[in-house]
Amino acid sequence: MKFLLKQRSVIPGFGLSLGFTVLYLSLIVLIPLSGLLFKSATLSWQEFWEIVSSARVLASFRLTFGAALVAALMNGAFGLLVAWVLVRYPLPGKRLVDALVDLPFALPTAVAGITLAGLYSGNGWIGRFLEPLGIKVAYTPLGIIVALTFIGLPFVVRTVQPMLEDLESELEEAAACLGANRWQIFTRVIFPTITPALLTGFALAYARAIGEYGSVIFIAGNMPMISEITPLLIITKLEQYDYAGATAIAVVMLAISFLMLLTINLLQWWSRRHAER
């Protein structure tokens, strides 16, 4: 333990607390995760490649990552809008609206899933208006996008909101004194300042969306090659006892998730640097 310590701290309990923490992490996280990696290592590169490049898997990747991207973009736009309105405009019951933004965090995904599926199906409250227009939402990729938008909303709002709140009004006042009009102030003063936060929120929403399962499987059609998301494909393979297949796909998803995590950390580091300037 000594080599870990930068300085011997006078506060006791270091050994006990760190020991327990590392033990817990190992048992719950590290060992199982490494189990995944070991399992995938039993596949040869060729087998691995064959699995992840099969048509069905590729279709699910396209769907999952594509839908997640669209949903994250929607959340980027609308999340910014909601954050703006919450921070800058008076609203009766603002506290209520603000608390409600966290609903997708708090609501179990299965509940969201069946509710959205019901709403957008042909005779659902919303679906019945859209169907005559020829827009089919339920059981199509469009439905997946709707569900992923629901899931990702709080991420953008909650990262942009504090940035907007901390924005000094002096910046805008200075720009106004220098003759800028409102649109210019928004695009050239405000927006650049919150861009890091916006990107971070976008990345968080995206990362969440690609792994999402519960809210999506009810409204998706779950038809292979058309509306089957990758998490569902993993489960299907598991049910068929194709552990190798499931593992291979999972490893790809994990790799991308970690890439996203890295990106998010970099974005957050960049935005902090931005703020300190």
Partner: peptide
């Protein structure tokens, strides 16, 4: 306490947030 590897520990603790729930179950099945 002061020790090296704090950020590593914190990143590990955040791990479940970046892993799909399905994969979280998969690892235990494996």
């Amino acid at each position: 306490s002061k020790f090296r590897g704090k950020s590593l520990l914190i990143t590990l603790i955040d791990l479940p947030f970046s892993v799909s729930p399905v994969i979280s179950g998969l690892i235990y099945v494996l």
